[in-house]
Simulated assay, not measured.
Amino acid sequence: MHVQSNIRNRRQILKLIRNRGEISRAELSKETGLTKPTISMIVRELTQGGYVTETGKGESSGGKRPIMLTLHPSNFYGIGIDLADEYLIRGIFCSMNGEIITRIESGYENNFENILNVLMTMIEKLMQYGSVDQVKGICIAASGLIDFRNNEIMHSHNFDIAGRNLAGVLKHHFGVPVLLENRPNAAAFAEKQLGCGKNFKHLIYMSSGRGVGAGIICDGKIFRGSSGIVGEIGRMLIPFEPELEYRGKTRHLEDLSRDSTLAGMASLAKGEELSYSQILDLYRLGDPDIERIFHKNAKFLAYAMQIVANILNPEAIILGGRASELGEHYLSEFKKEFYGDGSEISSRAQVLYSEFGRGGVSLGAAMMINDQILNFNL
Rank of each mutant, 00 (worst) to 15 (best):
Arg210Gly: 10
Lys270Asp: 11
Tyr205Leu: 14
Gly49Asn: 11
Ala190Val: 14
Glu86Arg: 13
Lys125Asp: 10
Asp85Tyr: 00
Ile311Tyr: 01
Gly209His: 01
Met154Thr: 10
Leu256Asp: 07
Asn165Glu: 14
Ile67Ser: 09
Asn165Val: 03
Glu254Pro: 00
Val230Ser: 09
Arg210Cys: 05
Gly91Glu: 14
Asn158His: 15
Val52Met: 10
Arg224Asp: 00
Lys198Leu: 11
Ser275Leu: 07
Gly107Val: 06
Tyr339Trp: 10
Arg258Ile: 04
Met122Val: 03
Tyr339Asp: 14
Ile204Glu: 01
Ala298Ile: 11
Tyr129Ala: 04
Glu86Gln: 13
Ile140Phe: 04
Glu355Pro: 00
Lys30Ser: 12
Thr70Lys: 13
Asp133His: 08
Tyr353Trp: 04
Arg258Val: 09
Ser227Ile: 08
Cys218Met: 06
Gly56Asp: 04
Pro37Leu: 13
Tyr129Arg: 06
Gly58Met: 08
Glu344His: 15
Thr53Asn: 06
Leu262Trp: 05
Ile290Tyr: 03
Cys94Asp: 06
Asn6Tyr: 01
Gly144Gln: 00
Leu256His: 12
Ala269Ser: 12
Asp85Ala: 13
Asn151His: 07
Ala304Asp: 08
Arg65Glu: 15
Ala309Asp: 12
Leu331Phe: 09
Asp82Gly: 01
Ser362Gln: 14
Leu256Glu: 13
Val52Pro: 02
Leu179Phe: 10
Arg25Glu: 12
Met96Gly: 02
Phe356His: 11
Arg149Ser: 13
Asn6Arg: 10
Leu268Met: 10
His173Trp: 10
Asp371Cys: 06
Asn151Ile: 02
Arg90Asn: 07
Ile23Asp: 03
Asn6Ile: 08
Ala187Gly: 07
Arg44Met: 07
Ile104Ala: 08
Lys57Arg: 03
Gly62Lys: 12
Asn377Met: 10
Ile345Pro: 02
Arg292Val: 01
Ser257Lys: 03
Asn110Leu: 04
Pro288Leu: 05
Gly225Asp: 08
Val169Leu: 11
Glu124Val: 02
Leu256Gly: 09
His172Asp: 11
Glu344Arg: 14
Asp289Ala: 06
His155Gly: 00
Leu116Thr: 05
Glu31Arg: 10
Gly271Met: 10
Ile229Asp: 03
Gly320Arg: 15
Gln350Asp: 15
Ile318Asn: 08
Thr250Tyr: 11
Leu363Phe: 11
Cys139Arg: 04
Leu301Met: 15
Glu22Gln: 14
Cys196Asn: 13
Ser24Ile: 02
Glu59Lys: 07
Asp82Tyr: 00
Ser60His: 09
Ser354Lys: 05
Ile101Gly: 02
Leu274Arg: 12
Asn313Glu: 15
Lys125Ala: 14
Cys94Ala: 05
Phe223Ile: 00
Val43Trp: 02
Met305Ala: 10
Leu244Glu: 15
Gln372Trp: 07
Ile138Pro: 02
Ile89Gln: 06
Ser347Arg: 14
Ser95Val: 07
Glu86Trp: 11
Phe240His: 15
Ala269Pro: 02
Leu378Gly: 03
Ile204Gln: 03
Ser29Asn: 07
Ala304Thr: 12
Gln193Pro: 01
Gly220Trp: 12
Asp133Leu: 09
Glu245Trp: 14
Leu203Trp: 01
Ile161Asn: 00
Gln278Ala: 05
Gly78Glu: 11
Ile104Cys: 00
